[in-house]
Amino acid sequence: MNYESIVFLLSASILISAFYVQGQRYIISMIRGQLVQSLLIAGTTFLLSYLNHSIDLLILGLLLLFLRGVLITYLLETKVPRRKSYVFEEGVNVPYLFLVDLIFIVVAVFIIYSIIFSSLVPVSQPGTSSTLLFPLLLFFQGLFLITSRRSTFSQIIGYVEEENSLVLFAIFLLPVPIVIEASVFLDVLALVVISSVITVEKFSHERMEELRG
């Protein structure tokens, strides 16, 4: 079987899940989109661990599954206000968001990837530097999600998406020591715990609010 194309397919699905999160108005759908994305990344990790016979990647996949798939999703879902399925963010203009997102992607592909990334050689999958494109695109999408939304939930999910992209980049480029991965996870976890405290207090952030004394 052609594993390379499976990895490619999974990566493309991760990218599409990022678009799904970007285009959602409803908070609960965004959280579940993030869940799907994390599960897909966990699946990619398991596949790569099988291909490279790497125990590190296996542990990493399990960590992803439990921390992102279960814990973060649970923490975020419990913080959504009552009548969960009806909580939505106003002023989400999908065509506008998608077009700006595409511009981000074009910039990512043509400037950053073609100049810097195309010469890198991934260890976990030799000869396929093109898969490195996906973490880059995911990173930009997370970044854009944070800047384009006002609700705290969207911004947390954007941050989780960025961390997801870092994990994806790490597993594609070279299997990094598990300690670093674990610290990234604790970082995300702590952030989610802190921000879930914030969400109790404040659901959305207006532009200049934080700067007032």
Binding site: A12, G23, P95, L99, L102, S130
Partner: peptide
């Protein structure tokens, strides 16, 4: 239509990179 457009542009770029 934005979704259709996004799909087409996205996979145009990907086919070029691949």
């Amino acid at each position: 239509l934005a979704v259709a457009f996004t799909f087409s542009i996205l996979f145009l770029l990907l086919s070029e990179v691949m």
